[in-house]
Amino acid sequence: MSPRFETARFHVESGPDSLFTRVRHILSAPVRLKAHGTHVTERLRQRDAPLDELTRLDPESWELVSVEVRTDTGKWVKSAWRVRADERDWWVVVGLGNALVTVIEVDPWRRGRGAGVITAGPLYALVDAVNTELMRG
């Protein structure tokens, strides 16, 4: 099944700052992530992931890596966080409503700055403007 809307990815090192400020504002307190659905439960099992540790989002000790936004609204829909658990490095992808989307074991050096990351242009400007306004609230 294809997604209902198109998304684009932004990296914490290249902004826009307003987007990452908003995500950190909304996910500012520790929370238990919901691990429901076939995809996420399969990935957890296949990757022998430490479920308890990877479903306890702690924004103080987890590192925000990237955020995906809807290209039509500029609002975030998923965020990827780096955490060390079970002596391994993980990216934990969190969706809206504190839903665990997937977990990926990664090498410690991996930073997520791939070619698909948006660093400038009209979409960057839209995302910055939308999230700046949302933070003014």
Rank of each mutant, 00 (worst) to 15 (best):
E63C: 03
A129W: 06
T21Q: 12
E133R: 12
L123F: 07
T38H: 12
D72Q: 12
W76C: 07
A115T: 08
W91N: 03
W62K: 03
A35I: 01
L44M: 09
K75H: 01
V103W: 03
G121F: 03
L64G: 03
T119F: 05
L123H: 05
R113L: 13
A29I: 02
G116E: 12
V117G: 01
E53Q: 08
R113D: 09
I118K: 01
V67P: 05
V94I: 13
L134I: 11
A129H: 15
V94F: 05
A125C: 00
T7N: 05
V65G: 01
L134P: 06
L54V: 08
D107V: 14
M1E: 04
K75A: 05
S79L: 03
E42P: 06
V12T: 08
R47G: 11
E60T: 09
E133A: 15
G37V: 12
T55V: 14
V106W: 00
R82M: 00
M1L: 11
E105Y: 02
L33R: 13
D58M: 08
P3G: 15
T21H: 09
E133P: 04
N98F: 11
R22K: 10
R47M: 01
G15Q: 12
W90Y: 10
R47L: 12
V83S: 03
S61W: 07
R84V: 13
W90E: 07
L51N: 00
V23W: 00
H25W: 00
W76I: 10
L19V: 09
F10Q: 01
S79E: 01
L27H: 15
L27A: 08
Y124K: 06
V93H: 09
L96H: 04
D89C: 11
E63A: 09
W62M: 06
E105N: 09
S14D: 06
R84C: 02
G74R: 06
R22L: 13
W91R: 05
D107L: 15
A29Y: 09
V117Q: 02
G121Q: 07
W62I: 04
S61N: 09
V92P: 07
V23K: 06
D107S: 15
L44N: 07
P3I: 14
V127M: 08
H25K: 15
R9S: 06
G15Y: 11
S18T: 11
T102G: 13
P50K: 11
F10L: 12
I26F: 02
G112D: 04
G112S: 09
R22D: 08
V127Q: 07
V65M: 10
M1S: 12
E6C: 14
V106F: 02
S28K: 11
G114W: 08
T71F: 10
G121V: 10
H36Y: 10
R4P: 05
